[in-house]
């Protein structure tokens, strides 16, 4: 069965004063293209990067990312 990692990054960005992808990328130390790829499900981030993103939004990793089977 194929598992898919979905995320709420786009919604969370807009809930946080419409944070731009570049601003989020700068906060977690990656390029904007990586944030775009993660948002669109084209790239699965490392655990460290996932936790950094969750911390930026003051959420847990499970609140940002969800594994769908």
């Amino acid at each position: 069965m194929a598992e898919k990692l979905t995320n709420q990054i786009r919604r969370l960005r807009f809930d946080n004063n419409e944070m731009t992808q570049q601003a989020l990328a700068d906060k977690v130390g990656v390029t904007r293209q990586t944030i775009i790829a993660i948002e669109q499900g084209g790239y699965t981030p490392s655990l460290v990067l996932g936790m950094k993103i969750a911390w930026v939004f003051n959420k847990t990793v499970e609140e940002v990312f969800r594994l769908e089977c």
Binding site: D26, G29, R32, T34
Partner: peptide
């Protein structure tokens, strides 16, 4: 660089 904080190479790169 796109921004001053942009890393030279991140984990996806």
């Amino acid at each position: 660089k796109q921004s001053p904080a942009e890393p030279d190479c991140d984990e996806r790169d």
